[in-house]
Nucleic acid binder design. Structure first.
Length: 416
RNA sequence: GCGAGUGUAGCUCAAUGGUCAGAGCACUGGUCUGUGGCACCAGGGGCUGGGGGUUCAAUUCCCCUCACUCGCCCCA
């Protein structure tokens, strides 16, 4: 009986994980420079939170959630996204009272029961940001700047930022009605999926890639023509802000989002290098969500980055190599050197050694394979003479070092 | 949920309805007993994903199943 990981779930091994670590590090540092703080949210919540937050007719809620009953009979769901939990925490801890705008970021795994595919997993990682408490377009611009800066810092530059405005509670219903009226006259030309979308979420039809639907949507009324004055002004200010910061973007009026809570600004960062899963980050404004989840009427905006997708666009980074390898011959050498090894490791020096008890040749081979910069040789001869041998593995130069005073001189050499 | 493709050594891949399923890389050992990379030599390693069927005989042909990959849908 061989065990293997569950379908759609994978291990990220050394060699692969380094890019992820860099991305996380870069994101943290960028977000914190913008004044955002980490919030660590649970990976499961009551099912109702997601149903209300994301929307009961969305694909995520209808068929992708990992939902189960816990031992008390409570309905629990592994989080499929991070915004609803963050908003729940915002309300629960009354973060609205602690600062005018709650600026939060999170990172961790999300779970969706989808068919695995290139760039799509059932457990996947997101790094996300939420700014709750302001509807100023300046915040939209800041959030987008954070996202693009982070991508740039990890060297992911061949991407496209697409933005759109979905309207708000005042103008979206009108647009929806107009759109539905238009599609009603073209129903027969739409694909089966789109006829279903017509009932559930007609805006999604705009996003269909089928040729027949495309010809219909090409002449469909544009969302941008139906924005109310306030939404239009908001959108204009967001675009102005991006231009001012020289952040390139295109307006894609077909851009709609699959989650119900988005309104006004919606955006997506895409790449052509990942096959079918071309979105590496996406987000938008969700001005009605806090209220929907039981909090005071509060606007918010956020995004999530797909960690695996971005990581595959990054160059690969080597696993760190040892600074120093200890080639020790005999138990006595091990006994005497262990304190030095521990002390140097405490200083942050990466030290490896041999655990097989093999001869010097074998240990040198291991030092080479691990890519150690230096090797310190201590055997019977060295114990007798009181002098260890330090070998530079690149230049092959060797020098003697006093056994009685190793740590400081070694530190100096390694840090030089 | 639907469609297509692929499962052979740790990895990348060969092969044939018929003797014992091979190669490269990797690994282990030796040439070289306290000095790595190179070279040469040798060695270990496989229920050919699992189950069933056809056949004298299946890794090969057929069916089922599982897994992976890619696409649709949807999404990050």
């Amino acid at each position: 009986m061989k065990f293997q990981s569950i379908r759609g779930v994978k291990d990220i091994l050394p060699g692969e994980i380094e890019a992820v670590q860099r991305l996380e590090l870069a994101a943290r540092s960028v977000f914190e420079s913008f004044g955002f703080s980490e919030i660590r949210i649970p990976i499961f919540e009551v099912t109702e939170l997601f149903a209300r937050g994301i929307g009961t007719t969305t694909d995520i809620v209808e068929k992708e959630m990992y939902t189960f009953e816990d031992r008390d009979g409570k309905k629990i769901t592994l989080r499929p996204e991070g915004t609803a939990p963050v908003v729940r925490a915002y309300i629960e801890h009354q973060l609205n009272l602690k600062a005018p705008v709650a600026k939060l970021y999170y990172l961790g795994p999300m779970f969706r029961h989808e068919r695995p595919q290139a760039g799509r997993f059932r457990q996947f990682y997101q790094i996300g940001v939420e700014a709750i408490g302001t509807d100023r377009p300046a915040m939209d611009v800041e959030v987008l700047a954070m996202l693009m800066t982070t991508l740039q810092q990890v060297g992911v530059t061949e991407v496209q930022l697409e933005i759109n405005s979905l309207g708000d509670a005042a103008c979206r219903p009108h647009y929806r009605k107009t759109l539905k009226a238009y599609f009603k006259t073209h129903l027969s030309q739409l694909c089966e999926d789109c006829r279903r979308r017509y009932e559930i979420n007609p805006m999604r039809i705009l996003d269909c890639k089928k040729e027949g639907c495309k010809t219909v949507t090409a002449k469909a009324p544009s969302s941008l023509d139906h924005l109310c004055g306030e939404c239009l002004a908001h959108f204009q200010q967001v675009k102005d802000g991006l231009n001012q910061l020289k952040i390139p973007f295109i307006v894609n009026e077909r851009l709609v989002r699959g989650l119900d809570y988005y309104m006004r600004t919606a955006f997506e960062v895409t790449t052509t290098k990942l096959g079918a899963q071309n979105a590496i980050a996406a987000g938008g404004r969700y001005d009605g969500l806090v209220e929907e989840l039981g909090g005071p009427p509060t606007p918010g905006i956020g995004f999530a980055m797909g960690v695996e997708r971005i990581a595959t666009l990054m160059e690969r980074f080597e696993t760190p190599k040892p600074d120093l390898f200890f080639a020790l011959l005999g138990e006595e050498a091990v006994r005497q050197m262990l304190p030095v090894i521990i002390r140097l490791r405490g200083e942050g020096v990466r030290i490896e050694m041999d655990y097989s008890g093999g001869g010097l040749k074998k240990q040198m081979g291991l030092a080479d394979k691990l890519g150690a910069r230096h090797t310190l040789i201590v055997g019977e001869n060295e114990l007798k003479s009181g002098k260890a041998i330090l070998r530079d593995m690149r230049t092959k130069e060797q020098r003697e070092m006093s056994l009685s005073d190793l740590s400081e001189p070694l530190l100096k050499i390694i840090r030089s």
